[in-house]
Every structure is written in structure tokens, then in C-alpha cells.
Amino acid sequence: MKLTTAPSLIDPARDVPELLRHARPAVRLHPRRGTPGVRDSHIGGPVWWPAAEPWPRCADHKDTGGRAYALPMVAVAQFTAAGFPEIRFPDGTDLVQLLWCPDWHDQPHPQGWGQACRLFWRRSAELTGPLGEQPDPAEHWEYGEDMIPRPCVLHPERITDYPGGEELPAGLAERFGAWLEERDLADDLTTVPGYKLGGFLGWGTTDRPDPLDCGDCGAPLELFLQFDTTEYGLGTFGPDGAPHRFRPLEERDAEPGDAVGDPLREPVDMIVGRFSHGGLFTCSADPRHPASFFTQ
């Protein structure tokens, strides 16, 4: 199934050409509820886990008596190099898996989470005995369900993303904001919402950390994967009152608020941050360094 984003009301090549040099490629993932295979790229669902490797656990939990205990981490996402060549896979790897603890921990992660948010980079040819049965989050997590994803298949769409005002040069950010205000336009060009690989995160709640660097080597961090409570807003787009720009063109007949439209707008069924979005950042020098997760 192909899912397509409507064009922006703003053409940076024509209207604000200074934005072009700050653009980055990104991939809107368009997750939709389904039954992904263990070897597929997906959000939620089973991952291709080696049978001989223990399933990771988060030990940062205490019972009412103050005694520490561990709970199995939750499989969040899996991506293959064949499906997503945009990912900078370390040499010798072609599969990446994200597991985390769905309980709240201090930000940024993993500085606050310890080892409770982890990326595993693998070579699929070496996975000869995938784990047959993986821990069921429903059997272990009495709370934290808001950060347990529903299994979703992906419908990737390659796009161009632009940074928000926090990451634009001050003069350009001001000129772009004034240009929008003069024309009574909303910014539908920068920090594309929804689930995406790459691009830019919007920092409207916490402000962007400065510096945003790797805790291991000091290299700049870059957005690896964005999470979002909803794929798009409920407002209209353009003078003709069309649906929100980021609602795929192929799904314009499904209205949010009913049994069909709600799973399209909130497919992963996670509440991220303050009912907003978050981003997993990796080291630009070596993505095997510990990742950091920030929510808004």
C-alpha cells in the first residue's frame, strides 16, 4: 500500500530559498496496525532475536518494600538495510533492533535510563536460530502500557524535512517566521510529524539541548527515529479546507474519531511525552554508542 503526503503550501525553492541548504532527507514510516513477520522492518511486533542470547531486562525497578527487581524490556522497532538504505549501518551489520523499558525514567536517556533504551546492530546472516517465543509485555507490565507499541507494518515514503526555528540560523528563523505571518500561513514544512527516520525533531516544549552531543565521544547527535502520539493533526489544510496536510492522500475518506479513522491517526497507540512526540538520537560518528531519547 502506498501512502502519500500532500505537498506543502510553501515551496522553499521559490519562496524561501535560504531554507534549502538546511534540508535533510527523511522517511515517513506510515505505520499501520498489522502482523509483521519476525524478519520484517516494523514498529512493535516480534524481532529477529538470537535464540542463544538472553532477552534484555531493566533492573531499575523496586517493589513496595524497596527491593530491586528486573522486568523484560519491550521490542519497539526493527529495520533492515534492504528496506532502509538511508540508515548508516555500522560495517558488517544489516539489521537494527530497538528495545526499551516502557516505564518512565529521567531524560535524557540513557543517561537517566542506564541500559533501559538500547539499539542492537546485527548481521542477519549470523542469526541462525531466532528466538521462538518472546516475552509478552501484557504478562509483565502492570503499568507503562502507554509506551508499549502495537504491532505495525510500515509503508515508507521518502520526503525532505527542514529544521524548526531552534536549529535555523537566528536571522533566517526570524525571516521565515515573518514570511509566514505576513501571509497568514501555518508552518507545514519543518519538523514533519509522525513516525519517521531521520530529519529534524521539534523542540517546542523543552528547547533543544545545547550542546546535543554523544556522551561517549562528544560527536554531534543526530535524529535516528521520531515517535509521535498522532500521525497528523485534526485541523484543515489550505484555503479550501482540505484535511490536515500530513493525513495521507489515500486515507482522506477516513475521518479521525471513528473506528476506522482513529487507528490510522494513532496506529502505534503510544502516548509519547506530553501527548506529543519524542526522538531517539544516535552518535553521528558511531551509532553503536549509547543512544539518547528525548520527549516533548
Rank of each mutant, 00 (worst) to 15 (best):
D253T: 15
F275C: 07
P290F: 03
P72S: 00
R123E: 09
G218V: 05
E167I: 05
S8E: 06
P151M: 03
Q107E: 15
H105S: 08
Y232D: 10
R122E: 13
D184S: 10
T229R: 08
R24V: 01
L20G: 09
D253Q: 11
K62G: 00
L29V: 05
F281C: 03
P209K: 08
R24W: 00
L225V: 00
D40T: 10
Q111D: 11
H155R: 15
V192Y: 07
G202E: 15
D228L: 08
A116S: 15
I10C: 02
H22Q: 06
C283P: 03
T295L: 09
E222D: 01
H105D: 06
E167C: 13
D253R: 14
C152D: 04
F176Q: 03
A6C: 03
P209I: 03
L197C: 12
P243C: 06
R57P: 00
P46Q: 12
E18H: 03
G92K: 07
G165S: 15
A186K: 13
R247D: 08
V96M: 12
D258Y: 05
A52R: 14
Q111T: 07
G261K: 06
L29M: 07
P90L: 11
E255W: 13
R67G: 07
D269N: 14
R265S: 09
G215Q: 12
H289V: 07
Q78N: 10
F294H: 10
V47K: 02
R175T: 03
D258V: 09
P46M: 12
G278A: 01
T229W: 05
T80C: 06
Y143D: 05
P130H: 02
D106I: 13
A219Q: 12
A13P: 02
F294I: 11
S124L: 06
L264H: 09
P130I: 07
L127D: 11
E145G: 01
V260C: 04
L71Y: 00
S276Y: 06
L189W: 01
M1Q: 14
H109S: 14
G164R: 01
V272H: 01
A116R: 04
M73N: 03
P287H: 12
T93P: 12
F79A: 12
P209L: 04
H61V: 07
C101L: 03
A82R: 15
W121L: 05
G66T: 11
V38C: 01
E18S: 07
L221D: 04
T64V: 05
G112I: 10
L201E: 14
D94A: 02
